[in-house]
Design a protein around this nucleic acid. Structure first.
Lengths: 165, 165
DNA sequence: CCTCACTCGATGCACCTGCATCAATCTTGA
DNA sequence: TCAAGATTGATGCAGGTGCATCGAGTGAGG
């Protein structure tokens, strides 16, 4: 027989949805008002800037960012159009390519982190003690794994000067 | 001088973003695979079904759902196209209208809740104890309020047979 | 009564997304 | 060596979203 969904789980679900969409909206708005592109661009630039020589295969980027393939493809188009990245041929696999971050890309990533980290502080840091933030992370982590077939990217360390993911 | 964003807050932020997008994706996929429309439709139908006579002004719906005006307008279009709601003239304010849920709308809302609650149970309830779900809700609530000018809708009770929001 | 500011809801436009599919290339295994 | 299948990345199409703006209607002040 079916188990009735717990009221607590439902309530947690609702809050999770509402709160993240509100907070995300706030952060994105702050960035937009400061004249920056969407957060997805930042994420991509960050991944690229971390990569060994500032370049990644699109398929790697896709796996890091957990977004669909076509989405990656078009995001790269836009980054290239804006001169934030450029495409390089991939000698070892002619189907593929490398995407390399440019100086302008690195520079934008750093400038965005200024605004981004300020927004996180404003909408998250200022509302939660460190201890509570840790508790929250812990509880969220338990939800994170194994929705269907899970492919969590090697979750990176969160250091002071760039947020990882 | 600027305060440096806390590592804990950043980490909590990242997890919040990642986890909710994963969990939401999973739930939406389950619903889609069961042949149901997107969750936004469910939310709208739920709000309507709860309203005094099953009808609301679009502007009310918009405030309940915290989505932009044009979004409400087009969502209503779609619901009406599918026969899940119908428009009624508003005698007291000729600019406005009422949107009324139909029987088909009520019926769909109930059927969706079956699949929806099962998905919540699967992706949230089964991973957290009730006590942890309560803790999570509490921590999230602290983030929820006052992003810029806050207009929290009168948050409704979460009862056993329909999830509220 | 009239005007002006505001609210309600719709819509044209640009862009973004999901889906399906494609061509090119790589890999596997007989 | 070669055919079958998998992988990489791009793209046409339909539909969803944000933004700006519009017309209609309301309501407060003079």
């Amino acid at each position: 027989m079916k188990r009735k969904p717990s009221t607590e789980a439902t309530s947690a679900w609702i809050r999770l949805m509402r709160v993240q969409s509100r907070v995300l909206d706030c952060v994105e708005q702050d960035l937009k008002k400061a004249g920056f592109p969407p957060l997805a661009w930042y994420d991509a630039l960050l991944e690229l800037s971390r990569a060994p020589s500032g370049e990644l295969r699109p398929v790697e980027l896709e796996r890091q960012m957990l977004i669909p393939q076509y989405s990656t493809s078009r995001l790269i188009d836009r980054l290239v159009d804006e001169g934030l990245a450029c495409r390089r041929e991939c000698k070892i696999d002619k189907r593929g390519q490398f995407v390399e971050i440019t100086e302008a890309g690195r520079e934008l990533q750093k400038r965005m982190w200024g605004a981004y980290s300020a927004a996180i502080e404003k909408y998250v840091g200022s509302k939660l003690s460190d201890a509570d933030a840790v508790k929250l992370s812990g509880l969220l982590d338990r939800l994170g794994c194994s929705c269907g077939e899970m492919k969590l990217p090697p979750v990176v360390n969160v250091n002071a000067s760039s947020p990882s993911r």
